[in-house]
């Protein structure tokens, strides 16, 4: 871990928000340094008061966990401690208007590599892909057991078989009970299209 408390709090909070372990977001030996890049990005682009308050609140949450469920190692929490951290982050950060915005921007950075002009993103709104490294390390692709479109380290023919499992695979059908598909024209809720479609085949 770094000696920079902001960095440690940023990575610790990122881990809770993304569901990915700290050592995957910020490995001990990290030639790419995406966590540092995102921290710098947040320091330069996010509302500074709200961002610092978010990191401070997370620091405070760690202290609450340490006092309620000792002994506590933030890098290696027990399941009960992890559950409590989730609960406190939801209650004290995500439910707060200003800090919730900051936290959700962090989730979008990690998963989608993108800083959107507004929070939440406008369905037809704009934004910025943070960097090439950010794009190729977006967690959405990993969560989908895929690879970033345009960046694969796999070999010819891999697509003919299922990918190796991960910690959420196999996974149940999402909780939708659509009895009949909406006929064209009958669906009433527009699908937001933040990603903007490809065209052409």
């Amino acid at each position: 871990m770094s000696t920079d408390p902001n960095f440690n709090n940023f990575v610790g909070l990122s881990s809770i928000l993304t569901g990915y372990p700290q050592d995957q977001l910020a490995p001990q030996i990290d030639p790419i340094g995406l966590a540092s890049e995102y921290l710098t990005w947040m320091e330069q682009n996010a509302d500074q008061a709200a961002f610092l308050k978010t990191l401070g609140t997370f620091q405070n949450i760690l202290q609450q966990v340490a006092s309620q469920l000792p002994p506590f190692d933030p890098n290696n929490p027990t399941p009960q401690q992890a559950a409590l951290m989730n609960q406190l982050v939801a209650a004290q950060i995500l439910s707060d208007p200003a800090m919730g915005h900051i936290a959700r921007r962090m989730i979008r950075l990690w998963y989608l590599s993108t800083w959107y002009t507004t929070e939440p993103p406008d369905p037809n709104g704009d934004g910025q892909v943070v960097s090439m490294n950010a794009y190729t390390m977006g967690l959405a692709w990993d969560a989908a057991q895929a690879h970033p479109m345009g960046y694969s380290e796999l070999h010819f023919g891999y697509w003919a078989v299922a990918p190796p499992g991960n910690d959420v695979s196999p996974n149940a059908f999402p909780d939708v009970t659509v009895s009949a598909a909406p006929a064209p024209g009958q669906a009433d809720k527009p699908t937001p299209r933040v990603g903007l479609q490809r065209g052409g085949i």
Binding site: L17, L94, S169, F173, P174, V178, S179, P182
Partner: peptide, 25 residues
């Protein structure tokens, strides 16, 4: 989209990762 959809936004952490996996795969 869908009339009886109980998947909601506002997710984070492992729950978010799990739902992304359930839908995208």
């Amino acid at each position: 989209s869908g009339p009886n959809n109980t998947v909601n936004g506002g997710l984070f952490g492992l729950q978010l990762k799990t739902q992304i996996n359930a839908i995208l795969t």
